[in-house]
Simulated scan of single mutants.
Amino acid sequence: MLDDLIEDNIDRLGIMGGTFDPIHNGHLVTAEAAAYQYELDKVVFVPSANPPHKTEQKITDAEDRYIMTILATMNNSKFGVSRLEIDRGGLSYTIDTVQTFKEMLDNVDLYFITGADAILEIFTWKKAEQLLQECKFIAATRPGYSLSKLEEGIYEEYKEKIFQLKIPGLAISSTDIRNRVKIGRPIKYQLPNTVEAYIKKRKLYKEE
């Protein structure tokens, strides 16, 4: 996937990391909005292998999550999927992923796309200050949500590296989708049809 990006000769790349268990329409809306608003040439979804903040939580097999991410993004030419964290193994730290992209894609502006809540906790991430030097961040905010806290304290130094992205209030979450499947409630229109079909075929989330 990274070789394809090099051939594409891109200038601005969005990286969207996540567990994607499963990927849903909220992820896709956020990525599309980020690509449009910040003129990204491509957005690469990077399913995590072992997210460090979920070590106590049961996570669906990485290959299933990778395939679902491909199914969800394959009809958008601006989207791509990378196996980087899955093939690397071990705990999936954002700093390691960003540094690998930077090493392979010289002179490309990197934008890491995440939620506003995560941004406000970024200094709990591994090598957070180095990470903020390595790339810019796009923080997706819900209607009525503000990143005003970025103007306070330690964030003051980095606020020019963090950009807000206002998206529609889609009340969709991977946790809710998993729970719905477990108890037999519908998930249609919350995620792509291809992903819904894959979940049914593989009988995912029936038992947690």
Results as ranks from 00 to 15, higher is better:
residue 86 I to G: 01
residue 23 I to L: 12
residue 63 E to V: 03
residue 78 K to A: 06
residue 60 T to V: 13
residue 74 M to D: 13
residue 19 T to N: 07
residue 27 H to G: 07
residue 99 Q to E: 15
residue 74 M to C: 10
residue 56 E to T: 15
residue 77 S to G: 04
residue 30 T to K: 04
residue 103 E to H: 11
residue 82 S to E: 05
residue 48 S to F: 01
residue 23 I to Q: 05
residue 84 L to S: 03
residue 104 M to H: 11
residue 28 L to D: 02
residue 85 E to R: 07
residue 89 G to E: 04
residue 93 Y to D: 05
residue 102 K to W: 02
residue 60 T to F: 08
residue 101 F to K: 07
residue 100 T to K: 15
residue 59 I to T: 05
residue 107 N to W: 00
residue 22 P to L: 06
residue 72 A to Q: 04
residue 27 H to N: 07
residue 56 E to C: 03
residue 19 T to P: 02
residue 21 D to I: 09
residue 53 H to M: 14
residue 30 T to G: 02
residue 108 V to M: 02
residue 95 I to A: 09
residue 94 T to I: 12
residue 79 F to Q: 09
residue 22 P to K: 05
residue 51 P to Q: 09
residue 75 N to T: 13
residue 108 V to I: 03
residue 46 V to E: 01
residue 50 N to E: 10
residue 51 P to M: 08
residue 76 N to V: 12
residue 75 N to F: 12
residue 95 I to Q: 09
residue 101 F to T: 11
residue 48 S to R: 01
residue 33 A to Q: 14
residue 62 A to D: 06
residue 64 D to W: 12
residue 62 A to G: 00
residue 24 H to D: 05
residue 50 N to H: 10
residue 18 G to I: 04
residue 42 K to E: 02
residue 60 T to P: 01
residue 103 E to V: 00
residue 40 L to C: 08
residue 96 D to H: 13
residue 83 R to T: 12
residue 72 A to N: 06
residue 22 P to Y: 06
residue 90 G to V: 10
residue 69 T to Q: 04
residue 84 L to K: 04
residue 41 D to R: 05
residue 64 D to M: 09
residue 45 F to N: 10
residue 106 D to E: 12
residue 66 Y to M: 13
residue 35 A to T: 05
residue 82 S to R: 07
residue 66 Y to V: 01
residue 88 R to N: 03
residue 37 Q to H: 11
residue 79 F to P: 11
residue 73 T to R: 01
residue 24 H to A: 03
residue 47 P to Q: 13
residue 39 E to W: 04
residue 38 Y to C: 10
